[in-house]
Design a protein around this nucleic acid. Structure first.
Lengths: 72, 72
DNA sequence: TGAAACAACGGACTATAAGTATAGTATCTC
DNA sequence: GAGATACTATACTTATAGTCCGTTGTTTCA
């Protein structure tokens, strides 16, 4: 599977665990609402700075963000 | 420390472990020699697709690439 | 039955990463 | 001192990352 899709699945999974809408989450990580949506759809090649922003919004380290079978 | 620098340190660390020059490594991951150099210097905000290319060149998963105290 | 919340989608735009080229420094060997 | 190897500095083009505006379709619930 494409790494873009894996990132999308992981993001959606974490966001749903927290019970947040895309919009609410976009406020937390200070990224655009539509951008978050397209990441979740596996359409984006996200840069490491934004991955870090996303991880921080989930109160987790970059290591923990990638600590999933998806990235094994 | 900036995440860009952390990526650079991790890359250099892994490359040195393998005893590869920047140029030889750049052949392995099919990225430009000078591009690899600037990543190592923490100047680039690398995207996940290129991080995956780099990890693959080291025969490791993205998970393992980030499995370092640097990203904890 | 409508309005509020949510996600998918699109178009136009700006910012920046990707990728390349060239030159330069430092060290070593012959 | 020429040639080879390893790395750094800078600067540039072009692809695409990322923003901002809006619309549409669905679900849920008062």
């Amino acid at each position: 599977m494409d790494i873009r899709s894996k990132i999308g699945i992981r993001l959606k999974e974490l966001r749903n665990e927290k019970g947040l809408s895309q919009e609410k989450f976009s406020f937390l990580c200070e990224l655009d609402r539509t951008y978050i949506a397209s990441i979740e759809q596996g359409k984006r090649n996200v840069s490491i700075v934004n991955i870090e922003k996303i991880a921080k919004a989930f109160d987790m380290s970059v290591y923990h963000f990638f600590n999933s079978d998806l990235f094994q």
